[in-house]
Nucleic acid binder design. Structure first.
Length: 437
RNA sequence: UCCGCAGUAGCUCAAUGGCAGAGCACCCGGCUGUUAACCGGGGGGUUGUAAGUUCGAGUCUUACCUGCGGAGCCA
């Protein structure tokens, strides 16, 4: 007897196999039962004719509740009537637990209810598809960087200070006499690891205590943050477009079935091919102002500010591919950004805006190299100098041009899947009003 | 923090200020190819909380709680 999984049934046609899983749904028609089994790799329809099996087996199957745990043994048969193309003629079954009252029924449910039952919701087909796409994105990003010579060097989650001084942080008691904060970015530490390894990246969670209440925000989210020594802003943009193109290809290759479940328009993913348009902030402002003149956007954008959500959406709508907007006013960017040598008002930062209104999925740029400049910036931003001494050391001992960026995993996943809200792109989302389960 | 919408059975939703309802889920019965199966029967309610208007409030008023959407902020 072969024990196998549902995704491998095509290798076992006309053979007896055993599958281990849970009951996804049960339909019956008098002397005929259709238990649908899921095992994490897929869903398969099984068939049991009353006259072909023992009375004991019939009785065992007939009253099973949704999500009952069981193993099913039977012959694999190709059948066009079955969803998925294969069917199991049941010859035996072992019920580990017969379940009554599984909360998530095959009808509609509201978001609040489903989120309260998130630990069960992730068993359902759509959530399964999204989380598998997430897995592929994570693996594609890591493989891309690993194969390109980046060394994984993860950065701390407890940090002693605000690393950029821009966002609200979660404060944690650290053994009574000290305060720690949950990291909002591994950025500053990545600069240290890049000086050690040449090319490095961190992959981990980031925490922002912003009271943001939109479909693009989580308080806990995951980022991949590559950093490169001897690299410029242009080098960063090269890596961004290659990384995103690679991710799109891998998602298309590995997750065709899942994209079908999600009803994703794959043409939108097929067009994610490097090179991407590179637009200076100044020109993006012109796009917005022209849009206002044409009456396509409500507010008239003024040079100097950061883009709001509607602004980002309008800019990205002008292109099929992700857009890389670069050289922002220094005032709206982090203190460690290098200034443009041709225009001191500008910082060498880049944001990658995804199409279809998904907004900023990557933020990055070239870092300042001058010790004196950073000392001025730290003072100007009222940051505690003593907490940044180690960071300033990086400019005392072998300072070189270097650059990097951070990509938000959940926003990228929402974009690839074409779904509304990032809360479905992580197994257990943490949001402003959601800490459980 | 601000603006808007919502809260009725386990779930999704109905109910002109006048008897609290349906579908799904659950239990019982029927059906040999079901595709969110279908058909018949059954149990299931402090209408988010508190106060008010009224002969009478799920429905109108006020406050609060909770959630959803958006803004700001951000990836």
């Amino acid at each position: 007897m072969t024990t196998t999984t549902i995704n491998k049934l095509s290798f076992h046609v006309d053979e007896q196999v055993t599958l281990k899983g849970w009951l996804y749904n049960l339909r019956s028609s008098g002397k005929l039962l259709f238990p649908q089994l899921r095992d994490g790799t897929g869903i398969v329809q099984c068939v049991a004719f009353k006259k072909n099996i023992s009375e004991e087996l019939w009785d065992k199957l007939k009253n099973l509740g949704q999500e009952s745990s069981l193993t099913i043994t039977g012959k694999v048969r190709a059948d066009e009537r079955a969803p998925g193309g294969f069917e199991i003629d049941v010859t035996d079954a072992e019920v580990l637990q017969n379940v009554e009252g599984y909360p998530i029924t095959p009808k509609e449910h509201g978001t609040e209810f489903l989120m309260d039952n998130r630990h069960l919701w992730i068993r359902s087909r759509r959530q399964h598809a999204i989380l598998k796409v997430r897995h592929t994105i994570v693996r594609a990003a890591r493989n891309f960087l690993d194969d390109d010579g980046f060394i994984l060097a993860d950065t701390p989650i407890f940090t002693p200070n605000a690393c950029e001084g821009t966002t609200n942080l979660f404060e944690v008691d650290y053994f009574g006499d000290a305060k720690a904060y949950l990291t909002q970015s591994g950025q500053l530490y990545n600069e240290a690891t890049a000086m050690a390894f040449g090319k490095s990246y961190a992959f981990g969670p980031a925490f922002r205590a912003e009271k943001s209440k939109t479909r693009r925000h989580l308080t806990e989210f995951w980022m991949v943050e590559p950093e490169m020594a001897y690299a410029t802003l242009d080098d960063v943009m090269d890596v961004c477009e290659k990384l995103l193109s690679h991710i799109a290809v891998r998602v298309l290759e590995e997750r065709g079935e899942e994209l079908k479940v999600l009803e994703r328009d794959v043409a939108r993913l097929e067009s994610i091919v490097a090179p991407f348009p590179r637009v200076r902030y100044d020109d993006a402002v012109k796009i917005l102002q022209d849009g206002h003149a044409k009456g396509e956007i409500e507010n008239r954008f003024e040079w100097g500010g950061d883009f709001g959500a509607p602004d980002e959406a309008y800019i990205s709508e002008q292109f099929d591919k992700p857009v890389m907007v670069h050289r922002y006013p220094a005032a709206v960017k982090a203190f460690y950004m290098k200034r443009d040598e041709h225009d001191d008002r500008l910082a060498l930062g880049v944001d990658v805006l995804a199409p279809e209104g998904y907004g900023e999925i990557i933020g990055g740029g070239e870092r300042a190299t001058s010790l004196e400049f950073l000392e001025e910036q730290i003072e100007a931003h009222n940051l505690p100098r003593e907490e940044f001494e180690w960071y300033l050391d990086l400019r005392k001992y072998g300072s070189v041009p270097h650059s990097g960026f951070g990509m938000g995993i959940e926003r990228c996943t929402a974009w690839m899947c074409g779904i509304e809200h990032v809360r479905e792109t992580i197994p257990f989302p943490r949001m402003l009003y959601r800490l459980k389960p």
